[in-house]
Design a protein around this nucleic acid. Sequence first.
RNA 1: GGCGGCAUGGCCAAGUGGUAAGGCAGAGGAUUGCAAAUCCUUUACCCCCAGUUCGAAUCUGGGUGCCGCCUCCA
Length: 499
Amino acid sequence: MTLRLTNTLTRRLEAFEPLVPGQVSIYCCGVTVYDLCHLGHARSYIAWDVLRRYLQWRGYAVTFVQNVTDIDDKILARAATEGSSMEAVSERNIREFQTDMAALGILPPDRLPRATRCLDGIRQMITELEASGAAYSADGDVYFSVLKKADYGKLSGRSLEEQQEGASGRMGEAEEARKRHPFDFALWKGAKPEEPSFPSPWGPGRPGWHIECSAMVRQELGDTIDIHLGGADLIFPHHENEIAQSEVATGQALARFWLHNGMVNVGGEKMSKSLGNFTTIRALLNSGTTPMTLRLLVLQAHYRKPLDFTAAALEAAATGWKGLNAALLVGDQQAAALGWPAATATSAICGSAQADSVDPAAPLEEARQRFSDAMDDDLNTSAALAVLFELARPLRSLANRLERGDAASGADDDLRKRWLLLRELSAVLGLVAELPATEAAAPGAGGPSEADIQAVIEARRLAKASKDYATADGLRDQLRSAGIELIDRPTGLTEWIRK
RNA sequence: GGCGGCAUGGCCAAGUGGUAAGGCAGAGGAUUGCAAAUCCUUUACCCCCAGUUCGAAUCUGGGUGCCGCCUCCA
């Protein structure tokens, strides 16, 4: 089966074939670095990370470029507020962005161009647009004339005639007056006093928002790329304008496939800075949610649909991941008991998994096929996850039997192959086993020390041995109220976890 | 006002013509001194009305509700 993707340009499911056989060029609209990323960004970049991993798994050589908008009104405003500079705000938030992405297991882009470092390409493109008559200057600003692009609106499905009415009166009056058409947009903005600026043939200023992506795509990947990615909220005007600029400048189609992810909602409304209903990735991870839990939460829904972020959904994902994680860890934690060759939990990350793949003739091939078919169907990760959970079930069962000292049954080679396949397919979704948190990392503020806990456990063990269950239960409750849950293993050992 | 999307069990969510994947929660069971944790089993008149069809969650028309975009936004 071939991979089929919903192309926003045609609003249809289309078979994907790259321009150059075996190679895929991808451009992903990145962040404006004025603040920490929130869950909307996480959802988007997790989805595209999975697209990238899947293409690689299918054998394509993928070049993945993501931009950073490091000059913008919000960055300037933030710099003014904190009394620093645009560069300081940008630099800091780029690092924060990279930290968050790494935490979520999102593969770093092959190149991460910044607007302020692509000014030559930007000025070049504006000059070309001016020469072709599609751009005009007005009071130090340069605008793109949408009437010069015959098919303007083809991505978002709107026509200039129909939209004119609704658009008027929404922009600043001064800017409105300089434009020839309400939809015309700035390619270059003349600098206001005191603002950082860059020289240009049109006077000091800075690039408009849309032009940087057009220039970067051309600079990094060429005139026509295979896939352009972004959030659905970028379809209009951002991507529409990118298309207009690039296609007038190059005479070529900008991107063959346009993919857009659905929004993250909170209480049915879009998560956004302006509504103040956002949760940063940082805050979520600090509150105890693991990266893989968030990944599972995101991948349980189809990437194009809205995703409602709720505490209940998060909890369900956490429990779900716990089960999958247990299955992924079976081979590592029980390798000795099973007599399997040892493997480390990290070896399955990303592309390396395929080297250890299962025998194509094995019956498990059917599961691999179902996974592949699901992903081919416009990245149906929800259906792909169902395959993972089904693969995991016997492994979890095996772990249960091992724990009860009943290892003999089923600890065979088929199960090992199943485990390897689970690891391989999970890695395609970026789902990689998380080792249990080390206790050293957990205690933090106020909790009882490990030595204290062991002391109580020993006291309880003695109480139990003398059948003094009242005392034993009292000790257990005591720890429970301190956030420590005890787990009596069949072996007689008592383990504990911090909740 | 214009453009687009979505409505499936208690919750989340696949499924685009042949009588409903998966996850969470719930229930029953195994295990346990009792728990917890774990494993096993189990739970659906697919928003409404009309139509097409031998047959529709799935196609067509109408309705209702919700969301996104049209301004910065992943």
